[in-house]
Structure formats: structure tokens, C-alpha cells
Nucleic acid binder design. Sequence first.
DNA 1: GTCTATAATAGGATAGAC
DNA 2: GTCTATCCTATTATAGAC
Lengths: 186, 186
Amino acid sequence: MPAPLMPREEVVRRLLEVFRGHGFDGASLAQLSKASGLGKSSLYHYFPGGKEDMARAVLEEVERWMAAHVLAPLAAPGTPARRLARMVKALDELYDGGRAACLLGNMLVGDARRLFRKPLKDAFGAWIEALASVARDAGMSATPARLWAEETVLSIEGALVLARGLDDPEPFRRVLRRLPGTLARS
Amino acid sequence: MPAPLMPREEVVRRLLEVFRGHGFDGASLAQLSKASGLGKSSLYHYFPGGKEDMARAVLEEVERWMAAHVLAPLAAPGTPARRLARMVKALDELYDGGRAACLLGNMLVGDARRLFRKPLKDAFGAWIEALASVARDAGMSATPARLWAEETVLSIEGALVLARGLDDPEPFRRVLRRLPGTLARS
DNA sequence: GTCTATAATAGGATAGAC
DNA sequence: GTCTATCCTATTATAGAC
């Protein structure tokens, strides 16, 4: 097929912003159409399965983004501190310094949770495992490494919730700032 | 007015379960009607402002619950450890050991966030301040106490997100188990 | 206070022309 | 691939009887 005016990837990225701001139930086709710049029919051309299909594509895009900007840096050569720092930088951009929500987190609300249970579980699981691997390379044994990894993801997710609740990105910025030290001290 | 068949408080509690499971956008009048056992028209009798009114009542109920089961125990006489333990017990029940979502957190998604910005901010703020007060009573100075309090709320919220993402309440249970120790060690 | 019935609108989805 | 027009259903909300 010929190259469309807008690459599918770009369409998906725009849909992502709607889903992450409004969740699955809250994202309407009207909003998705406006944000993507495509009419409803064009959206159905890209995503025959409708809204669920769009959300699935968005989740796959998140998986790809995570693989490239989180899992790969964490698994790359280098000191654990350096690998962790690369993830922190990527997350700081992804979440706009604490001002943007977590798509995965917002997909846990309502119908979406059971609809996308597996990809959500896999995404969190892969993230935790990649972090645990770094912690083991930093000298932790398996169990503490796993706990530190879960604690890390939990802190980031919690910080995003609190930042939105307090209307202040500072908790998120603090969590990211502190992260390197928790690896050394554990 | 005469006592209705079901106290308004009970109605609100049932609505709460719908909103906390589905968020604001995801909660439909049909679900709210079924969960409350009231017809749509009866719901509009209790809540003339419709869904927004229902959500507001639910948020007020959460504020009351927090005041009674979180703020009051934290401000009550007793050792800091004992006061904290009472909050932990209450939260463990509220969140069904990590199996239930946080209403406040789910209200941060979509339109609801700006609609209820103030009560949400106040609720998180009051919770944090009550915890900070306990921390100060435990010997921390103002700034560390505030940080510990924010960290505590953040961990609980993050744990609930992660527990739902992994489909496993263990992260939440761990956070609650660990909480008393963080007060002593900080 | 609660119900049945119904209005009015938004939402998701499709048809068919171009 | 994209658009306009349309369909059907669910959703929010109201009217009016009891």
C-alpha cells in the first residue's frame, strides 16, 4: 500500500494522548477523530475493530515505546546507575515532568481493565523484570531486587496519581530525583 | 421529611462503588440505578443535578469517611505508632486488602479531574497534613514530616495501581505492612 | 418517593460516493 | 483513504401518574 499522508504511527500517538487523558470509557470517537485529524470513517479504515482496536493499537505503541526507551536502556551495557539514569530521563519526558498521566494506569479503570488485562499485566511485569535485572547487576540478590523493582514502579505510578491530585508535579520530580540513590542504598 | 426506605447515606455508598469501579465517565445512570436499587427518576429526586451531583455526594461521603476513619484516628491521643496502625486497619478494609480501587485516584481521569479539582486536592491535602502531624509527633521536623506524609500517600496510591495492573493485591499488602517501620526509621 | 414512559442527545459504528 | 450522511443504541435527563 502507498504511504498515507500521516504515518499510522503518528495517528496512534495522537490517539494515545486522548486515551491517556480520558481513559478508555472517557475517550469518545469525536475526541479521537479531532485529535487524530481523521474523520470517523478514516479511523475505522485504520482500526476496523473500532475504539477497542484503537486502544489496543495504543497499548502496542506503549509496549514499543517501553521496549525502546525503558527495557532496552535497562538491559544495555553500562553501570546499573547509568542504565537507570537513561530510564529516568525517558520517563521524565514521557510524563512531561509529572504533568501528564500514565496511560497504563488510566486503562485500569472500568471496562478497559478486563478488556486489556493481559497486555496491562505484561507491560507492568516486563517493566518490573527489567528493573529487577538492573538491581541484580548492582549486587542485590533475587528477592530484594524484585522488591526494589516493584517499589520503583509503584513509586512512579503513585507519584503520578499524587501529582494530579495535588495539582503539583513536584512529587513526581522528587521520586525521579531520588531513584538513583535507592539503588545504591538497597 | 419522613425517613425514606433507604437512608440517603446508604444510597450514596452504593453509588460510590460504581464510581470507584468505573470512574466518572465510565459510570452510567443505568449502572448507578441498578447498584442503588433506585429507578432513574428516584436518583434524580435525590440528586437533582444528575450524575455530577451524585459524584459530588460520593466525594463528600469519602470526605466524611476519611475524617472519621483516617483523620480522626491520626489526630487522636495515643502513640504515633498506634494512631498510624488505626489508619492502616481502616485502609485495609476500605481497599479490600488491595483488591479495590481508589475512588479519588479514579476521579482524576478525564473530565472529572477539572470538575472536582478542589475537593480532590483538599482530600489529598488533608490526608497528607494529618499524616505529617503524626510524623512530627514522632519526632520529625516539619519538612521531613511533610515528605514522609506525601511518600506514604504516594505509596498507597501507587500500590493500588500496581496491584490492579499485576492483578495481585500483594504490593498493597506489603506497603501497609511496611508503613509502621517507615515512621520509626525516618 | 417511586414508577413508567418518553424526550433529547451523544456515542459507536456503517454505507457509499469520491 | 477520506469524506458526508446516516443508523442504531445507549445515555442523560424530564414529565407526569400514583
